[in-house]
Design a protein around this nucleic acid. Structure first.
Length: 421
RNA sequence: GGAGGUGUCGCCUAGUACGGUCUAUGGCGCCCGCCUGCUAAGCGGGUUUGGGACUUAAUCCCAUCGCGGGUUCAAAUCCCGCCACCUCCGCCA
């Protein structure tokens, strides 16, 4: 949720942000009107209620006839109070409904536009020239099957399309990646976490995944629970309705969790292999910090992501994601796109978002500031999405003989320097 | 899943049988001040959270006793539903 005060003090900023997102600007006017209605409703209720409270005190002391006449008066008032309360509640609900659909305020400097308007701000490493090496690169599935690392057919047999089984070295590779990621994150000061992958509606709504993104989320109706698409959900909700000590910030968490995505609306896209699947495991970084530190932490998270990809010796680009492609919660987002040889293009492997105070407001995560309390800022960033990274390792590090070079950083965790069939 | 118990403003706690000076008690901790060679002790005051009135401060108003409803002029207190935790039983990695 954006700061409701902003609607009164600077509605133009909200309109501009909404426009940048390619969303309805009229919605802002509706919300401003709803806010006005809500506030006047509350004022009316509070005034009546004060009157009623005053009478109540007199009644408590009164006796006999005086009490009877006071009772008659206050009964009438009570009906008015009840009606005013209902009006105020309805206006409040209307406001909430509208304001929760409003995306975060886009940070100045974010490129304007949609999916294709992100700006490449950095390119790291150089894609290999397989032609010069004298062989045609194989894709990750062909390589993975030859190594006995990926079993798509049985994945589909067990769970359907877009499911897989990591087998043998494939499974070992994931464990090695998890351990490398966790070891690095611990060095950077993150606390390791293993949170639930099944969460309540409040956690899902608080992180902004029940809006436009709802069709991509698995819901268990029998229990009204959701399968998370990222551990960001649990790590954000971890401190919901808490007031943190300022000295305890920034709080840095790194979590391992499975991630579930319905991939509705991506029918026919990336159908081969494990690029786009309904479930994968991920190591995710999450930061709760003071609002004024959020931009700096966003850069740090991006730095950690880059460090990890560099350690795996994978060429990649950094994209400053355009305003129309941010998702509800993010005020700015950087994606890392790694080079995928068989597609001759960069594909997304990580994503880091600065959600400013948007999620914290919805979830009630505050800290004690010099004067009063203040909502924290939350940020998240992918450290290692297993399936995507496995793809990149297999394809980028394949050798002419079908073996896979293992980057030095990963060797201590995998216990070998190459993968062979 | 079954039976019972508990949930009060950081922590502990009084209050709930009987609805109304509950404007929620006391202790601990913390903050400010006084006192005092220093420290401790002592003394006085403050200390839930959110919203609002006011230019600020002081002050005041509304809501808030796990959450949501209901009864009532009036609910921490009575009724209903839910949630969390504890104990026991059953089941289970």
């Amino acid at each position: 949720m954006i700061d409701p005060k902003l609607l009164r003090t600077n509605p133009d900023a909200v309109r501009a942000s909404q426009k940048a997102r390619g969303e309805s600007v009229e919605l802002v006017d509706d919300i401003v009107a709803a806010d006005e209605a809500r506030r006047s409703g509350i004022a009316r209720f509070e005034q009546l209620r004060a009157e009623q409270n005053g009478l109540g005190k007199q009644i408590a002391k009164a006796k006999g006839d005086e009490k009877a006449s006071l009772l008659a008066r206050t009964k009438e008032l009570a009906a008015k109070v009840k009606a005013a309360k209902e009006d105020a509640d309805a206006a409040g609900a209307r406001f909430d409904e509208l304001v929760l659909g409003l995306g975060n305020i886009v940070i100045d400097g974010v490129p304007l536009g949609g999916e294709d308007d992100g700006v490449v701000i950095e390119t790291v490493g150089t894609p290999r020239d397989f032609a010069a090496e004298g062989f045609e690169p194989k894709d990750h599935l062909e390589l993975g099957e030859a190594l006995g690392a990926i079993d798509m057919e049985r994945g589909a047999k067990i769970s359907g399309s877009r499911f897989y089984v990591l087998t043998g070295v494939g499974a070992q590779l994931e464990f090695a990646l998890i351990n490398l990621a966790m070891a690095k994150a611990a060095e950077w000061g993150f606390t390791p976490m293993i949170p639930p992958a099944l969460v309540k509606p409040s956690a899902m709504a608080g992180t902004g995944f029940l809006g436009q993104a709802a069709q991509d989320v698995y819901h268990l109706p029998a229990d009204d629970m959701y399968l998370v698409g990222t551990s960001e959900v649990a790590l954000a909700a971890y401190h919901s309705d808490e007031i943190l000590d300022a000295e305890s910030l920034p709080r840095r968490y790194v979590a391992f969790s499975p991630c579930f995505r319905r991939e509705a609306g991506s029918y026919g896209k990336d159908t081969r292999g494990i690029f786009r699947v309904h479930w994968f495991d991920k190591v995710e970084m999450f930061v709760h910090c003071k609002p004024e530190d959020a931009v700096a932490w966003h850069e740090k998270l991006l730095g950690f992501e880059k460090d990890f990809l560099r350690a795996l010796e994978i060429p990649f680009q950094v994209l400053d994601v355009a305003s129309g492609d941010l998702g509800l919660s993010a005020a700015r987002k950087y994606d890392c796109y790694a080079w995928l040889p068989t597609q001759q293009r960069y594909r997304e492997v990580t994503s880091t978002s600065n959600c400013t105070q948007f999620q914290a407001r919805r979830l009630g995560i505050r800290y004690r500031a010099e004067s009063g309390t203040e909502h924290v800022a939350t940020l998240n960033g992918t450290l290692c999405a297993m399936t995507r990274i496995i793809i990149m390792l297999l394809e980028n590090h394949q050798q002419a003989d079908g073996s896979i070079y293992v980057p030095e950083a990963l060797r201590p965790f995998l216990g070998r320097d190459s993968l062979t069939a």
